[in-house]
């Protein structure tokens, strides 16, 4: 299912999600667990603390799928998630990272 060729991968519509979260050891598990239990693959993931480190920003790159609205609502319900924003695939955060994956 995940063994797409590069061309196929580019054909799939992507979404970038930007999450502001409390920065503590359980947060990543809570977020990615929502995806894994629905067999919804997370294609890309990037996390860094923000400011004084009390919060972090998580960037997720996911394929668009009819379940995405439900996923976003589920993420919004997590206690440690402060906000969720949706961006299009053109968002540069993962584009700029691509040079590390050549």
């Amino acid at each position: 299912m995940n063994a797409l060729t590069r061309n196929e991968r580019e054909a799939v519509a992507r979404t970038v999600l930007e999450l502001a979260v409390n920065n503590h050891p359980g947060v990543m598990s809570h977020v990615v667990g929502l995806f894994s239990r629905r067999a919804y693959n997370v294609e890309g993931i990037l996390v860094m603390p923000v400011g004084d480190g009390a919060t972090s920003r998580i960037w997720l790159q996911v394929n668009e799928d009819e379940r995405l609205d439900q996923m976003v609502k589920q993420i919004e319900k997590l206690e440690d998630v402060l906000t969720v924003r949706r961006h299009g695939a053109e968002h540069e955060v993962f584009v700029r990272l691509e040079e590390f994956f050549r």
């Binding site: 359980g26 598990s29 809570h30 667990g33 239990r37 997590l78």
Partner: peptide, 14 residues
Amino acid sequence: TYGLSIPVTKHNFL
């Protein structure tokens, strides 16, 4: 326990 309980709780704390 923390990991096991994530999917079955509304929230959990260690």
